[in-house]
Design a protein around this nucleic acid. Structure first.
Lengths: 364, 364
DNA sequence: ATCGGTTGCTAAATCGGGTTAGCATCTCCA
DNA sequence: TGGAGATGCTAACCCGATTTAGCAACCGAT
């Protein structure tokens, strides 16, 4: 096994051998009771098993004095539960998305006394299976399988019949339903369109998808739902998009290209819905380079609330992906027996960050 | 009858209950040997202990057929080593910094068959101690203590006499030296200045620190070292900065402020060293808003290689923090008994990303 | 026949805590 | 005086693997 390299270090350690950990047996001996008694007291079953108040006090006292900390590995072995959750993500590094989600999960874990294993599948199924197995080998009590961009994702087979929550992902329609936590992209799409309508805009251009219902990257659940929301809201106002530009990838360069093309086509003012903040950044660049202004000539609403959004001039109005809450909710879901038992999708509202990129039509 | 274990498992296969995990005992029974023998064979000590080739084959065969996977919790208990590393960071969410570092560590961990626990201290010492203890309770074999912005950081006391590597941090000078892995900020500072000098620039303005040696945020090791490198390189060329602007925090707004002020003071062209890419973004904004161009009027070199750098127009020339390599190196260091035993600082080169924001002086 | 040396394997202890059946002892009341 | 019941605690097994001392059985040489 590759991991005993470290074990060696302790063994031939020179002088500064790490002091041996205090075990339950040490405590029992010092408190002059049996290990059973010590165990019962320390797991608060003392009253139940009628250990006298005096003995209980003694055990607790001694445990504190010796700085006793139970070895969770041992407890895991016996109880079959480890106080550990596995968090498997397709990629861990993409901007702060993953970070905030992990942060939310971490916060939940801390609250409940759990630790988090993390692993990265790099989108590779077999790699993911291996991760799941490595985690199951370590007796994780549950798994969060996260995706950094919302899309469909299979539940790893090894994890079947286990506690699993999908995060920012839904299972393919033909697979067994499970628990999933995702942002409510559709509602955000509607809200984005509504925001512009309420500000009096009627010429609404889409950057990143549209104008048709299917004009969006296939594997992006986020894209599909945002687009659907936008179109539904416009339709119910008796409108349709003034234009739409599908983008292969949602990066600034594409936003720049699409917006430059829009302006070159003769559009000098109007409202833009960009499908994410990085596209919006590209739009800002194109608009700036064309000598137009935001929000004077163009109002912009976007999605994600990337850090960029508050760096841009003017600050970008956008619907935030509630990464932190998603992570937290996934963990809470996992740890709640009642919830985890029932499959279903939990949609978390994407809150509006109202900033400076949208003006009332004709105001400026 | 080697396969009656299999048969048994097949029997209750109807029930929807999660199938019990195959244990070593199951394998031993099915292969008709003792648990000891099975264990020896599966840990490749069969030859050493003179188990016949026939028995070895049988055990291995059966193990594969039954899909045996050893329970690492049990092995951890016995061996005192868990195949697990703890990664404690002050913050896990800041942009992709943390992500890439974790990613590097994760890659190393996977290569060596380890899993990673992660925890976030939020910069709180006591929180950090609690994390360390929770990890030690789970028998981690080593700890990586990371900081997302380079600065001094104490080694958690509970982790003393353990395998610890500091990542992107160094211990305060008055504390016991340990292993640390950091980017070579000083060398990058010198290289940044050299890059501009070689391009013929003599008017070099600093955004984020300087012009004096101490004009930089106190707790930022990165800032101090970048500044020192820049000043040393300029000095050895017989120069000093044309100006310097200390910034409280290294965000676009501050870069914008400092650069706007610089331009307002009458500087219409020259070279800028921004202390990180977000400051550079602010500089781009200020320069654009003043109607000047990059690199026509202003050449810019920066540090970090934030995603922004390749989104800006023109793309930003910058020295990358090798996050991925830092994480990887920290893990490799931790797992190498020879290295971890000796305290010392490992400085990783910050590679130059040469892009479009620097021009030869007077060329354009 | 006996002894020493292999060969091939296993019993049993161990890691550290959790769990349960049940054993003394004492009290109280009939 | 004896039985029921409460009180206070512990022995002993369990989780699943690792590790070591050592035991049969057999072989060949004396």
């Amino acid at each position: 096994m590759p991991y005993d390299a470290l074990a060696k270090i302790g063994q031939d350690g020179e002088a500064p051998m790490a002091a041996k950990r205090i075990t339950l047996a040490d405590v029992a001996r010092a408190a002059d009771v049996s290990r059973s008694t010590a165990s019962l007291v320390l797991s608060d079953r003392g009253d139940e098993l009628r250990i006298s108040e005096a003995s209980q006090q003694r055990v607790r006292q001694v445990a504190t004095e010796l700085g006793y900390r139970p070895n969770m590995v041992s407890a895991s072995l016996r109880k079959g539960t480890s106080g550990t959750i596995g968090f498997i993500s397709d990629t861990v590094a993409t901007s702060q998305l993953a970070g905030d989600m992990i942060k939310g999960a971490l916060e939940g874990a801390r609250k409940h006394g759990y630790m988090l294993f993390i692993g990265e599948s790099e989108g590779d199924e077999s790699q993911q299976e291996r991760l799941v197995e490595a985690m199951l080998d370590r007796q994780v009590d549950g798994l969060i399988v996260a995706s950094m961009f919302t899309r469909e994702r299979s539940v790893p087979s090894a994890a079947a019949e286990r506690n699993v929550v999908l995060l920012n992902t839904v299972p393919p329609p033909d697979e067994a339903p499970v628990r999933a936590v995702i942002p409510d992209e559709y509602a955000a799409g509607r809200a984005a369109a509504r925001l512009l309508l309420d500000a009096g805009h009627r010429q609404i251009h889409l950057i990143g998808g549209g104008p048709g219902r299917d004009d969006v990257a296939q594997d992006s659940v986020a894209g599909k739902e945002r687009l659907a929301g936008i179109l539904d809201e416009l339709t119910s106002a008796g409108l349709s998009p003034a234009s739409g530009a599908e983008c292969r990838i949602w990066l600034p360069s594409e936003g720049w290209r699409a917006t430059s093309a829009l302006i070159a086509s003769g559009v000098a003012r109007g409202a833009l819905i960009t499908f994410n903040d990085r596209l919006a950044f590209g739009a800002y660049q194109a608009i700036g380079e064309a000598g137009a202004t935001i929000p004077g000539d163009f109002s912009i609403v976007s999605f994600d609330d990337h850090q960029l959004a508050s760096w841009l001039h003017p600050n970008l109005t956008t619907f935030a992906i509630p990464h932190h809450e998603l992570g937290l909710r996934a963990l809470e879901t996992l740890l709640d027996p009642a919830t985890i038992a029932r499959p279903g999708i939990d949609r978390i509202t994407m809150p509006l960050r109202r900033r400076g990129s949208v003006a009332e039509f004709g105001t400026i």
